[in-house]
Design a protein around this nucleic acid. Structure first.
Lengths: 328, 328
DNA sequence: GTCAAAAATTGAAACGTTTTTCTGACTGGA
DNA sequence: TCCAGTCAGAAAAACGTTTCAATTTTTGAC
């Protein structure tokens, strides 16, 4: 139960606590000789800075929050990896919270982050209500939207053009000869789902038949397949709002003896690693996930560390169609 | 930049700060009337407790750390989901860190957790050195090992019988007629990889040909396939230390025109969701991942909240063979 | 209506840092 | 030798909670 504080270190090194603090936070302000001595004392005593005391006094922490919609979705783990790389480089810790598509859970998580006095928050919001985020900002917590367009112009955001992606997907299906197309999606309260539909219908030239599932998981995809079959009238092609749905749907179709792409063409979204390894390699719309996480974090930390010079930016990436067997 | 503290709330409610603190931490100690009044004040002022100040004074936080080896591996995201469920129920926040298989990174992450004064740590250690964890315990931070047998008897751990799993996997391959078997694995510094090999060789009755990759990802699996082919002498069957390797290997073999299971039988480990959806549905060894996370967290929080009555436990789950096409 | 015991509330100290102001101790130019 | 100008380091005051002993209020039994 070792409990060495900054004063113990100070005593050991024969300096004042203030000097130890300087060694920790502005090493350049202290002479090499004493710095060396203090660092030795820290090492010998196994001192670990008390983050809470530090945060309390300094008024801000070295942590950022990352709130995602589904940590089980490889899309978000890829984003997370990018976030962690950058944060870690700049000495920030990341508190990861998973809203699991539940607005209530997201709210609880944001409260925890606010209590922890995180420096900033990266969030893929689970709905379109900006009020919660404005409340965070009022508390002095910077917010950067991830995979979401900005609510207003005085904030940073990093997104991918989902309308364009939806358009590209359906255009490809039509060029492959499909005339009847079904859009299988998660909750249409999620912006990504809406935008991809909008893009899809723009390419299609009219409203699409839609199957809306409560989740965007392989399980939901499989259920969507049952629904599709039960409703009768199999389409030429199915566009799924993400790859998890598509993979589940593919399995569901296979169960029913329906072949992809011979009977139904299938296209997903995200191009997760597993898309290429699936039963029939899945055509998908690739997003620069890793880059998304990196850039979002860079923007956030710039906003935190250089509030004076920081210029808010809205970054928009372009997705890329990856054609595989499921649409041939 | 609202900055209401406990004293503002106290003023508004016409009570002392101590009473507000009681409402927050032991509501049963304060009369319903004043409690009501204080809660109203909290709501009206939008007060959010300063977690750092609270942690500083109380000497402990309401957060736990979770350190995993690869957040991109569905095995760990499933465990994480279980952890989060239980922690969230008991009012704890989870700080998730990813060691990405790097010992140095794990060490850095543990330091961050120690600085944050987390109440306890759930960890799947990336190597066998118990020193780092002992150091945490010396600091009064409880540690529960996840997917790892105990280093000593005075600690909690939750594991799955990997030797048994390895044995079951190879026994199944042999019963299917395989006589030459290759074990494709991640770093043999990882216990899971070692144990699964031990179990595999027990079933095989002697040493197996081993291909050791530096990572346990689909990419590494694909490279393993190239290696396997380059080395010549294709075996009857391949046992992969996890499903990611197996899926990558499957893709790699397909590229080279080698068919699974006709030319080579293939079995993975973990039974991640994607195993069933792969090109050829993958035979695998299923682990109770979600349960692993739940039980580990229950043990940890019991240790934290009831140190007096807590009894250390070492839980060992049994894996389950799931047979699919890749071994038929 | 009184009194002791229990319950509710108060007030101030303390948690371990960071920050700011201030004091000495050097430096080098006159 | 003196002085202004630097630079290192010291000392003490915060930061916003929780806790604990002390005090007041309420309760219940007689």
């Amino acid at each position: 139960m070792s409990d060495v504080g900054i004063v113990d270190v100070a005593a050991r090194a024969g300096v004042s606590p203030g000097t130890v603090s300087n060694v920790l936070n502005r090493p350049e302000k202290v002479s090499p000789a004493t710095r060396e001595r203090v660092e030795a004392a820290i090492r010998e005593l196994g001192f670990v800075r008390h983050g809470s005391a530090s945060t309390l006094r300094a008024g801000h922490s070295r942590t950022i929050g990352l709130s995602v919609i589904d940590i089980g979705n490889p899309f978000f783990t890829d984003v997370t990896a990018g976030v962690e790389e950058v944060a870690s480089d700049l000495g920030y810790a990341v508190i990861l919270s998973n809203s699991a598509g539940s607005r209530a859970k997201e709210e609880r998580n944001l409260l925890v982050l606010a209590e922890q006095r995180v420096r900033g928050v990266l969030i893929t919001p689970s709905d379109e209500d900006p009020a919660r985020l404005d409340r965070l900002r009022d508390r002095g917590i910077s917010v950067v939207l991830v995979d979401h367009p900005p609510h207003r112009s005085d904030q940073c955001s990093v997104a991918v053009n989902d309308i364009g992606g939806g358009t590209a997907a359906v255009r490809h299906l039509m060029e492959s000869g499909a005339t009847s197309i079904v859009y299988v999606t998660g909750p249409l309260t999620i912006r990504q789902c809406l935008d991809r539909r909008a893009g899809a219908e723009r390419a299609f030239g009219g409203p699409l038949r839609v199957i809306e599932m409560p989740a965007m998981t392989p399980r939901a995809g499989q259920q969507a397949a049952e629904k599709l079959i039960a409703e009768g009238g199999l389409p030429d092609a199915v566009f799924c709002a993400n790859d998890l749905l598509a993979l589940g749907l593919m399995r569901g179709l296979a169960h029913a003896g329906i072949r992809v792409p011979q009977d139904v063409a299938l296209i997903g979204y995200d191009d997760i690693d597993f898309a290429a390894a699936s039963a029939v390699a899945l055509t998908s719309v690739r997003q620069p996930t890793h880059q998304l996480g990196r850039v979002a974090t860079e923007l956030l930390l710039d906003e935190c560390d250089n509030p004076a010079t920081h210029a808010h930016q809205q970054v928009m990436f372009q997705p890329e169609l990856v054609i595989r067997e499921s649409t041939r």
